[in-house]
Amino acid sequence: MTIDETAERLIPLPPDQVAGYAMDWRHDPDWTQGIREARLTREADKGGFGVGAEVTRTAYFLGKRIDYVLRVAEHVPLRLLDMVSVAGPMPMHVTYTFAPHARGTLARIRVQGDARGYYRLAAPVMARKVRSSITKDLRDLERILTPAR
């Protein structure tokens, strides 16, 4: 079963602040639901973070520990981060986009996946959980970046 969920939120800050924070893998555990740890396990083809880099995430989903590796497929600083899983329990595609808006930044997360095996049975629950999680991710991102306004 295919999962394809998208969430978006208007965050009242400029894209350099929002995307600059969100696209830095070191912040993943701070604002991304369920992620306990994120490590850069392969640098980009030209060094550092960018196309070809791989981030290994440790998360908990439906009560189960999941370790998965996302490879950066496309990276446009402050605008787009597109990643595909190269190791983990199921094929996954995660896309973050950040667009300038008159009132700040329109932040969007899209998660696509192909639930197989154990996860296939839980696919309908997973789709709802993914939607809820990415909605919370964007809310938490805004909360972290705009404390006590």
Rank of each mutant, 00 (worst) to 15 (best):
V18N: 04
M90K: 02
H75T: 01
D24F: 00
R108D: 04
A107M: 06
M23Q: 11
G104M: 09
D45W: 09
G52S: 05
A7F: 02
L141G: 05
P124Q: 07
D45Q: 12
A87Q: 13
R57W: 11
L138F: 10
L121F: 09
D67S: 11
K64D: 08
A38K: 03
P14I: 05
W31K: 05
G47Q: 06
E142V: 09
K136P: 01
T56M: 11
V94A: 14
P100E: 15
Q17K: 14
E37C: 03
M83P: 02
R110N: 15
R79D: 06
L13D: 06
D137W: 01
L106Y: 01
P91Q: 06
T58A: 11
K46F: 04
G48V: 07
R71V: 11
P12L: 08
G34F: 01
P91G: 06
I11L: 09
A73H: 05
D82E: 12
G50I: 03
R103C: 07
V76W: 00
P124V: 09
Y96F: 15
L78C: 02
G104H: 04
T97L: 05
D114V: 14
L121E: 01
P15A: 13
Y60H: 14
Y96V: 06
H93Q: 13
R131I: 00
P77C: 04
D24C: 03
R139T: 15
A53W: 00
I109D: 06
T41E: 11
G52C: 04
A19N: 04
D140T: 15
L78F: 13
L62R: 05
P91R: 09
H27F: 08
R39E: 14
R108N: 07
L13W: 01
T32N: 12
L121R: 10
V18E: 05
I134N: 03
Y21I: 12
P29Q: 06
R143E: 13
R110A: 08
G47V: 05
A107D: 06
Y60P: 01
I144Q: 06
D45M: 10
A73L: 12
I11W: 02
F61E: 10
Q17D: 13
Y60C: 13
R42P: 03
R26N: 09
V125S: 04
A102I: 10
E74D: 15
T41N: 04
I144A: 07
F98G: 13
E74A: 15
H93R: 14
A87F: 07
T32R: 13
D28W: 10
R36P: 01
L121S: 10
R128C: 07
P124L: 08
A38T: 04
Y96S: 13
V125M: 13
E8V: 00
H101C: 11
Y96H: 14
V72W: 00
D114T: 14
L62T: 01
V84G: 07
A38C: 08
M83W: 00
Q33L: 11
T97S: 15
Y21S: 10
K46Y: 04
L10R: 12
R108L: 09
T105A: 08
Q112L: 08
